[in-house]
């Protein structure tokens, strides 16, 4: 690590003066303690990550509170937006799980808005993107995974194991197929967590690199990375929506798979 660092450092050094800012695009993923706390020997300090998660939650609630201030029959702009998100999540659940899924609608709605607001608030300069933390997305993904397994076991009992042996296969193939199915099943929470975290990390890293170049290059050349950064910010907003949608829809798909085994 030291070797790489020094190598890069010396390389950047001749691009800019020695006092110039260093290229450290991963720096803003650094979790920093704000209020050290501990519970039964566990470290539960409030960090910048948890602070921005709380800010996101507060922002979601504030958004809905403002939107539903007068519960108008003819909605204003903000209320339309809130209703749109609400109806969107409701249709998502309805289309992917069906009527039985109505129970899980609050979960899907909360997941969608939690991920969305963390993604979007993370784009504010100086803020922290909680969804770029593997453990944050992992917690959500494992929660969804445990829920879907729980639903499957509760509904089908031991029959849930049939998920790993798809019907219509010749017996000879089973020893091959079962491990594949088990792995692909266990990969679900991993891919769910890694997709979100890696998307956010990659996007912000590229953005960080672009902005670094904008700052270090001479003004006439810096315009190019700056315009890239502007476009990428728009792309990141889009990706924030897409990833929240994907997180919500995959949650629905996993719950549906557990409910109605294929």
């Amino acid at each position: 690590m030291m070797m790489i660092s020094t190598a890069i450092a010396s390389e950047t050094a001749h691009a800019a003066a020695s006092a110039a800012p260093k290229l450290e695009p991963l720096h803003h993923f650094q979790v920093q303690k704000i209020v050290p706390l501990s519970l039964f020997g566990w470290d539960i300090s409030i960090t910048n990550s948890s602070l921005w998660m709380m800010i996101s939650v507060a922002a979601i609630l504030l958004f809905f509170k403002m939107a539903l201030k007068n519960e108008a029959k003819v909605p204003g702009r903000l209320q339309s937006l809130a209703e749109m998100g609400f109806v969107f999540a409701r249709d998502l659940v309805q289309d992917n799980i069906g009527d039985e899924g109505r129970k899980y609608f609050p979960l899907v709605l909360a997941l969608f808005f939690f991920v969305l607001f963390n993604n979007l608030l993370g784009l504010i300069p100086g803020s922290f993107t909680a969804t770029s933390q593997l453990i944050v997305t992992g917690t959500l993904a494992i929660g969804v995974f445990i829920l879907s397994v729980g639903i499957g076991v509760a509904r089908h009992g031991v029959g849930f194991l049939k998920t790993f042996a798809p019907g219509g296969l010749p017996l000879a193939l089973l020893p091959l197929m079962i491990p594949i199915e088990v792995i692909s099943f266990l990969a679900r929470p991993v891919s769910l967590a890694v997709r979100l975290f890696a998307n956010m990390t990659a996007g912000h890293t590229v953005l960080g690199v672009m902005i670094f170049f904008t700052v270090t290059l001479p003004v006439w050349a810096g315009v190019i990375p700056l315009s890239f950064a502007v476009v990428l910010t728009g792309v990141e907003i889009f990706i924030g929506f897409i990833q929240a949608y994907i997180f919500a829809i995959l949650t629905c798909v996993y719950i549906n798979d557990a409910m109605h085994m294929h």
Binding site: R195, A198, N199, T201, A202, I242, I246, I249, L250
Partner: peptide, 20 residues
């Protein structure tokens, strides 16, 4: 489009595994 976004997410995840 619903399936496209799911498919896109699955394919994109592969690239991100490489990144990870």
């Amino acid at each position: 489009s619903k399936y496209v976004w799911i498919g896109f997410a699955l394919v994109e995840a592969i690239a991100l595994y490489g990144l990870v």
